[in-house]
Design a binder for these strands. Sequence first.
RNA 1: CGGGGUGUAGCUCAGCCUGGUAGAGCACUACGUUCGGGACGUAGGUGUCGCAGGUUCAAAUCCUGUCACCCCGACCA
Length: 572
Amino acid sequence: MRLSHYPIQTTKETPAEAEIVSHQLMLRAGLIRRLAAGLYSWLPMGLRTLRKAETIIREEMNRAGAFEVLMPVVQPAELWQESGRWGKYGPELLRLKDRHQRDFVAGPTHEEVITDIARRELKSYRQLPVNFYQVQTKFRDEIRPRFGVMRAREFVMKDAYSFHADEPSLEAGYRLMHETYTRIFTRMGLDFRAVRADSGPIGGDVSQEFHVLASSGEDAIVFSDGDGYAANMEAAEALAPAEARPAPGEPLQKVPTPGAKTIEAIAKLLGVPPQHCLKTLLVEGDGEGDAAVVALVIRGDHELNATKAQHLPGVAAPLRMAGAERIHQATGAEAGFIGPVGLKCRIYADHSALAVADFVCGANEKDMHLTGVNWDRDIQGYVAADLRNVVEGDPSPSGQGRLKLARGIEVGHIFQLGRKYSDALKALVLDESGREVTLLMGCYGIGVTRVVAAAIEQNHDERGIIWPEPLAPFQVVLVSLGAQKAPQVRETADRLYGELTAAGIEVLYDDRDARPGVKFADAELLGIPHRLVVAERGLAAGRLEYRHRRESESVEFPADEALSFLRARIGH
RNA sequence: CGGGGUGUAGCUCAGCCUGGUAGAGCACUACGUUCGGGACGUAGGUGUCGCAGGUUCAAAUCCUGUCACCCCGACCA
């Protein structure tokens, strides 16, 4: 492709709207343009990369025996009513009416449609297992779209759905997708981790997320340095401390703590470390009276894990903190002075909070705290639970090593759905003995547009993008310098362009009448892996210049060996 | 949804406080010089100052409303 005729506009200045580096670089390199909040157009250069990602995904899905389909973006409300999600899905679901006032949705995902296909097409266990996938546009009306295509409202997703007659088959299909995703992200040249995700009350290892590691990632992920354990923060288990709790050594005392509503303030005021202060969070319960709130007690230096909390019996899901009125009703005090002593509501205490003796907590009385508090002696009827986020250095739940924290960008999610949709939509097949059985389902997503952004987030420098080679829009950028006044430069570059292209190499030929600085800067901003420079200087000696985007020094080589030289570099 | 902020040329922004002929840089067009790391000169085109009302002799500027966009928050008492 000749750059002189390629519709692309790069900019030196960073657009004000872009906060993270991938968004900035995608705009500066002219890969995408914003149409409205969370809606982006892909321009030719950007689309080439998006297609590369799609192609890798398709090849690996096909290799795994999945079948590509294409389902409608617009879906009838009836299907969503049938699955129950019409009522449950919040404002993220874009609802539309057609001219006949019939309700439709812009599909945020396609479980309903694929299950409808399955119940029509699948009649016998002999047709199973089967995996259908598509690469298609989704719409989710995000509260706050941001970070460009990283969290857009409209985005391209590869979604796959597998159907099985029994659990072992579902598990095998799930494992196959795990392998397939690993192949996909490996082929893309990304540094990624598969982590356990929150699998809900069902339990078991049925949901995993694939994260591209990047310091700017929105998600906290956790992994062990001593074994294979990896999970996202929501799902990462905090073990109970191994050491036994010391015996009570102090009497229970009430002390005035005027205005000290935070752990930090109390720790400072009373001169105790935060881990000896326990904080009591009141959340809404799922009942009336004493069951209207639930108390959660964690150590002052720990954070509540909302996902864990909302799975506890008696806690309303989704988790909501109790309002000031509820807090007053349940404790007689206000937030900041709450403690577990004397509470009538259900009390859950985090394992690590239970290991503390002679601790400080709120007195359930304004401007008062208790010191020398002890479990069992002063508080009874509590239940031990895992309530907190793990912290760096916690022991690995699977036994070996300590936990480390990292940031990740979720680019894939695989899930054993079970019968949730097949039950609701009555997707059944006949088994070997002629009995009707409900299909088991797995679903597997990859955010294709997000993968592109994540690749940049992980691979860039101050000059621009550094594409992993499998995702680069072009493999080679061929730069001619001074072609206007040196005909042999133009001739050589033209000939090289023809030869390399004929050899099947994707070449972006910068034949523009621009100054060297402009050409180099654009080549680096665009992140093309291999750069070939044709200039009068080297050509006089019969030499060309090569440089990889990741390297800082160029190398020269004989001009007539260009093809073999490049082939060796590209591995083509 | 709550709080904060911004809307002026294709882009980045100044001008607004203190009302008086709409600006700079980048980008774009032409010509000339330049040519191995985002050149320079000359000339040129470019605007419903987000939109609607209001105040005023006069509004980008003041007032009211409205729309759009951005940021923070919406668990950590």
